[in-house]
Design a protein around this nucleic acid. Structure first.
Length: 475
RNA sequence: GGCGCCGUACCCAAGAGGUAAGGGAGAGGUCUGCAAAACCUUUAUACAGCGGUUCGAUUCCGCUCGGCGCCUCCA
């Protein structure tokens, strides 16, 4: 078991991680609202959470990772009066809410899979936990934190002593309503809805009976409900994007602790945004890139994963195609090295038998991870290790594969892409190589170079090595 | 109006009160008929600007300029 330090948003400081129970970790990561594709900014956060889980597991913790799928309750508007995002998307696309949810949930996991993001231990849908939410709301209500107004059940933030602690909010200094019209039914602008009853959605799906009338849950309650259901009323880590600090997570804390009467989450971790030149990536500004777009532009999804690894999760990372190109070059070079190591070393050296020098690299790599997931430093360690001439190929291979347990770049499965070329093409290429060899032997370099160029235009690069000519795909 | 972050070489990006990781790109070299690949070497007297604290700051403090995020659905 390795000591780990994380930056806890609660308290805004690096803190030593101490799990509630020994070797187990309960981790809840806010999942997607499945009304549209995830964009690469969203995906950055999931890469971060994946690194977090992989790191904890590497250090010996048994992690239960829970992720929600928001398929109801998340409103599209700037205030609590907007339409549910799922309903809106379904209406606009002429599909049922169920179809929309299934489609985008599948798309989401297809993306995360392509990024080598491990599946959470438990994936739970909001719509399958409505009764649990109602039960939790009733506890909050029984404890006196709610009021009913205008058809909605509200959480009364003034009853919750340290509301806004996570975000450092001071209620009296916030200019609530400066940019958004405040719901007139609210006693306090920061009150939020636990349960909606909206007659205008009477004939639509996503309505459930409740003690407060037919309606649907507020967005925040699902995370409180499902996290506690699967991880217990107090658990270790809750993560998400920085945008969730001030509202979503702040409200989650208020309602959760109002229900149970005790502390809910010990460590809060938030991933910074992926930003473009003009600011953050968002669906409304039109600068909305999906992983699929990157693939269509010729990138491997793992190029994007590598790109994410290049920046610390608590710093904004600026996306650019040039940056992605650089990530691709670096990743391909890494893969080439691993392939070469496999060819030279055969099987990796057994980890326990590695000597002092390799183990120092491993320790440095782990130190970086343990220091609030310093991936750029961990990556730098990996590169330095890869270039160390004092190490044997078997040692280097063993270590790089070991590190890849966290990096998640699929290095164990790395192999020459040439193996995917069909036999007929291989035969054709080999004939060309033979003809070129003959030309070279006759010192007819013009012909030799012509053949090499012909192959090059077809994406096949020839390399003359001491023991003969080999070919490889360039794209 | 409030809260917070950032500004490091051509690009991305770490970092530490004592003299700047790593990657990409570039340059030179070895090898080669020439290439490619690989390997070797190389690329910030200095970390936006100006002050202050200090024996010493790029790293701490203040101000200025510039960029960004949150306070409103949002990873």
């Amino acid at each position: 078991m390795h000591d780990v330090y994380f930056f806890n948003t609660m308290g805004r400081s690096i803190q030593r991680f101490e799990p509630l129970h020994d070797h187990t970790v309960g981790f809840y990561g806010c999942g997607p609202t499945v009304y549209n594709f995830a964009h690469i900014g969203n995906l950055r956060t999931y890469v971060f959470e994946d690194i977090l889980v992989r790191t904890l597991r590497r250090f010996g913790y048994d992690v239960t990772h829970v992720m929600n799928i928001t398929d109801v309750g998340h409103l599209s508007g700037d205030d609590d009066t907007g339409e549910d995002k799922m309903l809106k998307s379904a209406r606009e696309r002429g599909k049922s809410v169920l179809e929309i949810a299934r489609f985008y949930t599948d798309a989401f996991f297809k993306d995360t899979e392509r990024l080598n993001i491990n599946r959470p231990t438990i994936v739970c849908k909001a719509t399958e936990h409505i009764q649990d939410m109602i039960d939790l709301i009733r506890r909050i209500e029984a404890n006196g934190y709610t009021y009913f107004a205008g058809g909605n059940l509200y959480f009364d933030v003034s009853k919750f002593g340290h509301y806004g602690e996570l975000a450092g909010l001071q209620l009296d200094q916030l200019k609530a309503g400066a940019r958004v019209e405040v719901d007139p039914h609210k006693r306090n602008p920061f009150d939020f809805v636990l349960w909606f009853t909206k007659s205008k959605f009477e004939n639509q799906a996503l309505l459930w009976d409740s003690p407060w009338g037919k309606g649907y849950p507020g967005w925040h309650i699902e995370c409180s409900t499902m996290s506690m259901k699967y991880l217990g009323e107090q658990f270790d880590i809750h993560a998400g994007g920085v945008d969730h600090i001030a509202v979503h997570h702040t409200n989650e804390i208020a309602q959760s602790e109002a229900a149970t009467g005790h502390k809910w989450v010990n460590y809060w971790m938030h991933a910074e945004f992926l930003v473009l030149d003009k600011g953050k990536m968002s669906k409304s500004s039109g600068s909305f890139l999906t992983l699929q777009t990157l693939v269509e532009e010729g990138y491997d999804p793992l190029d994007y994963r590598y790109f994410c690894l290049g920046g610390h999760y608590r710093s904004q990372l600026s996306f650019s195609w040039e940056g992605l190109d650089q990530a691709r070059s670096a990743r391909l070079s890494l893969v080439d090295r691993v392939i070469a190591l496999k060819e030279r070393a055969g099987t990796p050296a057994p980890l326990p038998r590695l000597g002092e020098r390799p183990m120092r690299y491993r320790e440095a790599f782990d130190e970086a991870l343990a220091d609030d997931l310093a991936m750029p430093r961990a990556l730098a360690q990996a590169w330095t290790m890869l270039k160390d001439p004092e190490m044997t190929p078997a040692e280097t291979l063993a270590l790089v594969l070991d590190m890849d347990d966290v990096l998640g770049l699929g290095l164990a499965g790395a192999e020459r892409r040439e193996t995917s070329v069909d036999a007929e093409t291989v035969r054709w290429i080999e004939e060309k190589i033979q003809k070129r060899a003959d030309a070279k032997k006759a010192r007819d370099f013009a012909t030799a170079d012509a053949i090499r160029n012909e192959l090059k235009t077809r994406g096949i690069q020839l390399e003359d090595r001491p023991d003969g000519t080999v070919w490889r795909l360039t794209e």
